[in-house]
């Protein structure tokens, strides 16, 4: 069964209670950003926790000016892409911190120390990444999301967390 498969009921996305119910829900029906139905999957503990953070990020930023400084609302497509990205992450990575950004993105952040940081964000169908991994120059990039985390983004995350 593909790790990219999602286990989400769309109804959960926009409910204030969604985070808790989704966090304990181990399988359900799912859609990717392309609205393509995929198979269900049993989720691991960390993925459930991160899933809840994605839902919370959307709940906190579901309307324009949610930050009081004019930030755009996080779109439904962004949420779908974020969930797709979450389940595309290799299981050996530590759980990221998930947060809404004032740009309208949802960000997945791995922070080890100030010299080892990676951020992967999604906005609608686009994935962006930035990272520093020690003394090497910072890396960054962007590409459309296509069910898998971009190889360069994954490399940036691994450089930040210190795994191969």
């Amino acid at each position: 069964m593909s790790r990219n498969a999602l286990a989400v009921t769309l109804d959960h996305y926009y409910s204030p209670e969604a985070s808790e119910s989704a966090a304990v829900s181990l399988s359900a029906t799912a859609f990717l950003s392309g609205r393509e139905r995929v198979s269900s999957v049993t989720l691991g503990h960390d993925q459930n926790m991160v899933f809840a953070q994605v839902i919370n990020a959307r709940a906190a930023a579901d309307h324009d000016n949610w930050d009081g400084n004019g930030a755009p609302a996080i779109s439904e497509l962004t949420v779908s892409t974020a969930i797709g990205l979450l389940y595309a992450l290799p299981g050996d990575l530590p759980a990221p911190e998930v947060m809404p950004e004032s740009t309208g993105e949802i960000a997945f952040e791995w922070y080890r120390d100030k010299a080892h940081v990676a951020v992967v964000t999604v906005q609608d169908g686009l994935v962006r990444w930035s990272g520093v991994g020690g003394t090497a120059p910072a890396v960054y990039g962007a590409e459309p999301f296509s069910r898998a985390i971009p190889a360069k983004a994954l490399k940036a995350v691994r450089a930040a967390v210190g795994s191969r």
Partner: peptide, 16 residues
């Protein structure tokens, strides 16, 4: 590009 701004900010934070 927002990803490039973040990368620059990471480099600055590294030195701070």
């Amino acid at each position: 590009e927002v990803e490039k701004r973040r990368a620059a900010a990471m480099e600055l934070a590294k030195c701070a």
